[in-house]
Amino acid sequence: MLKNKFLSLLILVISGNVFATCQLDQGTPHIFNIKSATITIDASARQDTSVPIYEDDSGPQGAELSYINCDNGEMYGRNVMHLSGQDSSTKIFQTNVPGIGIKVLMRNNNGGNPLNFPASGPMQFEDGSAQGRFVCPAESYFTIQLFKTQPTLTLTNKGGDVVLPAEEIAYTWVTADNPAKYTRRLNIGQLMIISTPSCTYDNAKTVDFGTVTTNTLTASGIARDLDFSLICKTDYGNYSASAAISTQTATSDLKYIKVKDAAGNMDRLAI
């Protein structure tokens, strides 16, 4: 009895290996590259998960990649490496900088919608055949997009904080989800970010000096206050701000602003 059971099990295992899997027929697995970049963002930029603060594409695949003897229902898909914390609603992954997220897309130049990562599904051949050819189009390419996902960033290096290091971050696969057996792979260069402090001031101000005559103008002049507020924002913690006045009618020594008097003279009055 023991011998018969062993024989039955052996037959079952062997029969489980007779099903075909996709075989590479044309082209070779392709590696895509996106160059290094330092992204500059204004500290006042609003949080937005629909409009990227940065976007870049890899070059196109260049040649068709195809597999034959693929079973109807055989799996294929897209996945990522070294990325985590994806928001399922936006498909945006976290990066090394809290508040900066990344989305990875696969695109074709045939006008179709960009494909998000990760995803997988069964092959389905249009003619209903049990087996068929699976093609990765020659015009395929990768896109990365960076988004500001929090109102304020926490940065420490004014020369640039590393958003992501240079590394492999995404791949596509056929039959088995294994990065070592990729069909297409995306490598990126180091991505860094620098934030520019941003200041805003309240609305334009009018300073009324009234009517200035030789009788009202004293030796010390006429003084009026210029009241305004300056609101600044930075992603680097503490900061100091300063304000200055500029004019197109400065005196040659840059100490005064020339004023036109009632007679049209520009050399009689100054602020």
Rank of each mutant, 00 (worst) to 15 (best):
N215T: 15
P137F: 02
S252H: 05
K260F: 10
Y171M: 06
Y67V: 04
G101E: 00
L254S: 09
A130C: 05
N265Y: 07
A219P: 03
I92G: 05
A20T: 14
S50Q: 15
Q150W: 05
T183W: 04
K181G: 07
F209P: 08
I231S: 10
I144E: 01
A138P: 06
N33G: 13
N69E: 10
I144C: 01
Y76C: 08
S129T: 11
A223G: 09
T149R: 01
K103V: 01
E167H: 10
R185D: 05
S120H: 09
A263R: 13
P60N: 08
S58M: 01
P122K: 02
K3C: 11
T154V: 14
T216E: 07
Q47I: 06
Q61G: 05
K255W: 03
K260Q: 14
M106G: 11
P60L: 05
S220E: 12
N4S: 11
D87K: 01
S252E: 12
S50E: 09
M81S: 14
N96M: 12
A180G: 13
N110W: 05
T28D: 10
G160H: 03
S88H: 11
Q248K: 07
A204D: 14
G210S: 01
D267H: 09
V97F: 01
F209R: 05
T214Q: 14
E168R: 12
M1Y: 08
S84V: 11
K103R: 15
S15Y: 03
T196Q: 00
A263D: 14
G77M: 03
N113H: 08
D225C: 03
L164Y: 08
P137N: 09
T143M: 04
T216C: 05
N215F: 13
G237I: 01
L153V: 00
